[in-house]
Nucleic acid binder design. Structure first.
Lengths: 330, 330
DNA sequence: GACCATCTTGCAAGCGCTTTCATACCCTGC
DNA sequence: GCAGGGTATGAAAGCGCTTGCAAGATGGTC
């Protein structure tokens, strides 16, 4: 603390009242006479006083903090969700404290420790690979997005990824494609595996052989996966990628190979990150609406912190048709 | 605090020592006999004890927290910088606490208050429009990126945007372009204005009339700006955008208009966000390396917090040539 | 064996705030 | 004029931790 902040005692002295009274006007926890209220307010103003949340938390016995664990602040998918949650939490007394797990389990566990230390009253898990066993000892309610976690005081917001992936694949099938590949990943969580399952189901139903390669859910992985894909299955006419970053990476490889999208190959992504609509051609993808996900998560958080059971109605996943898919004749 | 955490007193009781001793082994602030160390460690282990940073901060009189103010967690430019700073700070005892200003001055001021309340020991400003006058009363050292701030205990990391913009424009000129437009913004900070100045200078030197339109530094603004641009200056052959998001937005408009990049129009961005290299064609842009910026900022932070004057050597801005610019004959 | 230096340890105060409890005060009603 | 019931306020304890201070223990020296 560079320059020492004024304390409640100083405010009290200046206003000619006791610290207790200052606290009461600050929190509105008891009636205080008009004149003292005024005196206190003036003293606060003059001193530029800001109460210390640290001390408040300690005294009140609660932190009003909620932890949000996400893979990476730079993620085009999780970043906007974090932003949305933060925005929704603004009008509440609760403050998010966001920590990145940097895509590593160790870091995620460290982050958890950190949050535990800070006595967060709940934790939101975005795209982590944590297991229930690591969470239970925290003794804090958990809200997970994208993975199904079971345990006491644990809730999950999981959207129907399998169904959405199934529909996305069906969509390609209906457009006449038969040689459809999927770029999945070993790195992702349950949602990524579900997408693979949905793809498989659609292919199986048509008696088609699935073609699956794996990336890292990042652009470079998508690029490499596309290379592998075309080497192994040169007659592929459509690619369904497990996320938009992968699709965008794949698209660059196609471009470099001189393959046009959608004329030579059709492409479908997943997530609908902000930049998806601005790709050339605009990327057809399954939309996971960050804003709504953030809202739902924040709402569940509020319920949770008021001791209620959170209502987590799943958000429908919509395929948004843009320009990266072409109809082909059989 | 859902389930009450064990306190230092419980650990002490269990280990058969005083709380002071536990504190000493925790902090290594004094010698403690081997056997007691072991007893304490065991007790900590058994109880699953984690010290409360809140209480520690209060008692120590310092928070070990640094505030990081950025416009938006979802920003493809600032997100990665935040990530980089966080990563660099990991091995230090300092913890970043990031708050978004949501592109609004009021919010930024609120965020500042929040940070002040939390007794952060320093504040990093990323892309804000705050003025020195709002910062001074905080009494905390400030580190600004992208804007030059003067004041006591205030430092700025400002890269030579004007020069880089000048060179980017020169680059286009050397490629034979003469009808070069710039998409700027009223919304940005000093760096955006500097880019405009650099562009102007290059154009003036060649006796060319500048063509400037304005966006909001987001994709949609770039799209709209491109529309306006082509309406007002149909013979434009190259666009230099104030940032990559703008360039990407503009590019979509060109695409919809049936204009090819770079065949019909060349495009240059600024920032080199992660997705820039994956655009089609890959976007030629001025690189502001997030990783290095983060590192420099974190290093300055460490210096600062150790009472030293931070050394902020500017990072060179490089034009990275990719595929969105074509040479034209005069 | 007395004395002193050194090391380990506990006591207690204090960090900035909240909150319980008790006190002092004022008003009402008889 | 006094008992009774509110109401506004302050004193003080306590939240979980650190740290200055002093006491006790240990060992070495003359």
């Amino acid at each position: 603390m560079t320059r020492t902040h004024p304390t409640i005692a100083e405010v009290a002295r200046r206003a000619g009242v006791s610290p207790a009274t200052v606290s009461r006007v600050l929190n509105g926890t008891a009636r205080v006479s008009q004149e003292k209220v005024r005196a206190v307010l003036r003293a606060i103003e003059e001193l530029g006083y800001t109460p210390s949340p640290l001390a408040q938390s300690l005294a009140k016995g609660r932190s009003y903090a909620v932890g949000i664990l996400l893979p990476d602040f730079g993620s085009p998918f999780y970043g906007p969700i974090l932003e949305a949650i933060t925005l929704e939490l603004e009008p509440t007394p609760f403050r998010p404290i966001a920590v990145p797990g940097h895509w590593s389990l160790v870091r995620e566990l460290e982050a958890l420790d950190f949050l535990k230390g800070h006595r967060v009253e709940a934790i939101v898990l975005l795209g982590t690979s944590l297991e229930a066993s690591a969470l239970e000892p925290l003794g804090v309610p958990i809200l997970a997005f994208g993975q199904r976690l079971l345990g006491p005081r644990t809730w999950s917001l999981v959207l129907n990824n399998r169904e959405a992936a199934y529909r996305a694949t069906r969509y390609l099938l209906e457009k006449g494609h038969r040689h459809i590949a999927h770029i999945s990943s070993h790195r992702g969580g349950m949602d990524v595996r579900e997408r693979l399952l949905g793809y498989r189901k659609a292919m199986r139903e048509m008696g088609l052989a699935p073609r699956v390669v794996y990336g890292n859910l990042q652009e470079d992985g998508g690029y490499e996966a596309a290379r592998e894909l075309l080497a192994r299955f040169p007659d592929t006419t459509a690619i369904f990628a497990a996320n938009d970053q992968t699709a965008i990476g794949a698209r660059l490889y196609l471009f470099e190979r001189g393959l046009a999208v959608p004329e030579d190959l059709s492409l479908v992504g997943f997530d609908d990150i902000p930049l998806a609509a601005y790709q050339v051609p605009p990327l057809t993808t399954v939309r996971q609406p960050a804003r709504e996900v953030g809202r739902a998560l924040a709402q569940a958080l509020k319920d949770l912190l008021q001791g209620e059971t959170p209502s987590l109605s799943p958000i429908p996943l919509q395929l948004v048709e843009r320009g990266s898919v072409k109809e082909v004749r059989a």
